[in-house]
């Protein structure tokens, strides 16, 4: 990927973000996305820096606030492809409320969450998805809170596309990214398990590799109960693939009569 600026990624050696960045580049090409009509939206965190290393329009906003900005960008110009790439802390922690409401809106944005189960940028505190017992400089007695389950929440709230992949399995990741990019049903969630060699010594690349199991053809992704079973499976086995995919929910941008003809920005007469 051609970089537009001199500073190179500030990620640690072995960080899953490198793999996500490279895979995203090929996935965008494979999905035939016009970079000039692509906006990458992110919050703050190590994951959220990814847009800087791409060729695209970039809205790198505040920690936790990628979703409201992305929602409005899509409403203002629904001709644009709006893709969020941000961390688990950004999306499920600071931005948790927006996550729920973006699903309710079913706004047609793609949301790729780099889920390293830790706050990387701020040096290793627990994130909402950290496993119970994980010790950190703050959670000195181990994480006592039950991990947040983004996939189960997303399914229950009716997200039309819910998938999970692994940063270091590039073939699988690319397949999931392309499927997500091509999906046109509204809010699209891809949770990417991502090793953080510096701050998550528990959920390492090896740990993930030993556990992930691609979801078999026998799974019916339109079956909410089956999907929930997969979403709640964690531990010795972690299913990856398209967990839930359901047609039929209208997108917010399709419901608003003001947007019926041309994108809002093109309606501006001044």
């Amino acid at each position: 990927m051609r970089r537009l600026h001199s500073e190179s990624p500030t990620w640690c050696p072995g960080c899953g973000n490198f793999s996500i960045l490279r895979t995203l580049d090929s996935a965008l090409d494979e999905a035939g996305i016009d970079r000039h009509r692509l906006v990458l939206v992110s919050g703050i965190g190590q994951a959220a820096k990814l847009p800087h290393y791409t060729r695209a329009n970039v809205f790198n906003g505040l920690h936790g606030r990628a979703l409201p900005a992305a929602t409005a960008i899509k409403l203002a110009n629904h001709g644009l492809e709006v893709l969020i790439t941000s961390g688990d802390g950004d999306m499920y922690g600071e931005g948790g409320n927006h996550f729920i409401h973006a699903i309710r809106r079913n706004i047609g944005v793609k949301c790729f969450v780099h889920n390293n189960q830790v706050y990387g940028l701020t040096k290793g505190q627990a994130s909402p998805t950290s496993d119970c017992g994980m010790q950190t400089p703050i959670q000195t007695h181990g994480v006592m809170l039950r991990p947040f389950n983004p996939l189960a929440i997303a399914i229950v709230e009716g997200t039309p596309f819910v998938a999970r992949s692994l940063a270091v399995d590039r073939a699988h990741l690319q397949e999931m990214m392309v499927a997500a990019l091509k999906h046109d049903g509204g809010f699209t969630l891809l949770d990417i398990l991502q090793p953080c060699p510096s701050f998550n010594k528990r959920n390492t690349a090896k740990w993930y590799r030993e556990r992930v199991r691609p979801i078999g053809d026998d799974h019916d992704p339109t079956d909410m109960h089956a999907a929930l079973d997969l979403a709640m499976t964690w531990g010795d086995e972690i299913p990856i693939g398209i967990i839930y995919r359901k047609k039929g929910r209208p997108k917010l941008e399709d419901l608003n009569p003001v947007l019926a003809n041309v994108p809002l920005v093109e309606q501006y007469a001044g």
Binding site: V39, F59, R65, L67, T71, A72, I73, A76, V265
Partner: peptide
Amino acid sequence: AAVNMACGATYAG
């Protein structure tokens, strides 16, 4: 959310 939406919408024009 409201103010961040405003940032997104104005960015988009």
